[in-house]
């Protein structure tokens, strides 16, 4: 297999708060190959957003990336000088944000904020930049793009704003797009359109994508490979078919069990209650020793409390971190 486009090794991002150190991301590994979509799933608070921000060194204080490597096309982004990082951000790796209402600057027109990015990165004229912005707005399915240039974010609907957000990410033809819950803030009917658009663009432009979500349904539809996160660590990574047909990690199984299904019979009348994983995600100020999932794990044994499982390849392209599935571990 060829070198991956991006490989994240032992990434650690901690929040240094008044109450102590919150180990939000604590030793995460994953890789993205050229042209593929990697889905990252996990419950709320599992560290998906923090991980994806850390790739471009965007974690806000009081968080700090305290360890690991983020190797993109052969260079470690975590040690790159700021100036060189600026030629990666927006140009080679771009981001699509969760909330289109807050991720566009309210006081600049669409044309000026997208144009600014192009003009910064590329030696082109204003007119060329404008033409490029128009062609991208067209590409993401915005009608009458020339008129939109002069509009402000508040004049567009949520779905339109997210299309603009996607166009912004694609301005410089990046080889990787990081999309953090790009549809969560949108109406259900719009969500499907935006997902289709992303899938279509990814294919046509041949870029790779990291799609962060807590929705198994979304990754089922979009991802080539899937990484499952829990409490700041990776549980399991495999191609999508394997994750859905033969999940190994108990947490992956629990997540799949909690997915709504067409054949599922809900109880509870009008207010349909989805099955959820019993227990709560751990407090990352003081995570459980050993496997972080052990307090909620149906398969837990005594050793799980003291051995921290490490990601171990159990089949080609399939890694799991569970001592009961053959993973190595280190004793606490």
């Amino acid at each position: 297999m060829a070198e991956p486009l991006l490989s994240v090794e032992d990434l650690k991002v901690h929040f240094f708060t008044r109450d102590g150190v919150v180990r939000a991301v604590d030793g995460v590994d994953f890789a993205v190959n050229r042209g593929e979509t990697l889905g990252i799933v996990g419950e709320s608070g599992s560290g998906k957003t923090v991980s994806s921000l850390a790739l471009l060194r965007l974690v806000p204080p009081p968080a700090r990336t305290v360890g690991g490597r983020v190797v993109f096309e052969g260079t470690d982004l975590l040690t790159l000088p700021t100036k060189a990082l600026g030629t990666i951000r927006g140009r080679r790796i771009a981001m699509v944000f969760q909330n289109p209402a807050t991720s566009l600057n309210p006081i600049y027109s669409i044309g000026s904020q997208l144009g600014e990015i192009l003009l910064w990165h590329e030696p082109i004229t204003r007119a060329e930049a404008e033409a490029r912005v128009i062609s991208l707005l067209t590409l993401v399915g915005i009608t009458d793009p020339a008129a939109r240039l002069r509009q402000y974010p508040h004049e567009l609907s949520g779905g339109m704003k997210q299309r603009v957000g996607i166009a912004r990410a694609l301005l410089c033809n990046p080889s990787l797009v990081l999309a953090d819950e790009p549809t969560t803030a949108l109406d259900v009917t719009i969500q499907a359109q935006i997902l289709d658009l992303l899938a279509d663009l990814r294919r046509r432009l041949g870029m790779a994508m990291v799609l962060v979500t807590h929705d198994m349904g979304v990754v089922a539809r979009m991802a080539d490979r899937i990484t499952v996160m829990y409490a700041g660590r990776v549980c399991e990574t495999a191609d999508a078919a394997t994750i859905f047909r033969a999940p190994q990690h108990p947490y992956t199984r629990a997540l799949l069990d909690s997915m709504p299904r067409i054949d599922h019979r809900y109880t509870g009348g009008a207010r349909q209650v989805l099955p959820t994983i019993p227990g709560r995600p751990p407090n990352l100020l003081d995570p459980p020793a050993g496997c972080r999932f052990h307090p909620r794990c149906p398969d837990a044994i005594a050793d799980c409390r003291r051995i921290l499982p490490l990601e171990t390849e159990i089949a080609p392209g399939h890694t799991v971190s569970c001592i009961r599935r053959g993973s190595q571990g280190i004793a606490a």
């Binding site: 806000p60 700021t82 927006g90 944000f97 807050t102 600014e116 910064w120």
Partner: peptide
């Protein structure tokens, strides 16, 4: 702290432009 500031940084704009151009005016 706003998303559009993170977005401006993620777009590769240098910090002084993010602060003076995007943040200060808001």
């Amino acid at each position: 702290r706003q998303d559009f500031i993170t977005a401006a940084r993620a777009s590769g704009l240098p910090e002084r432009r993010v602060v003076f151009g995007h943040a200060l005016r808001n």
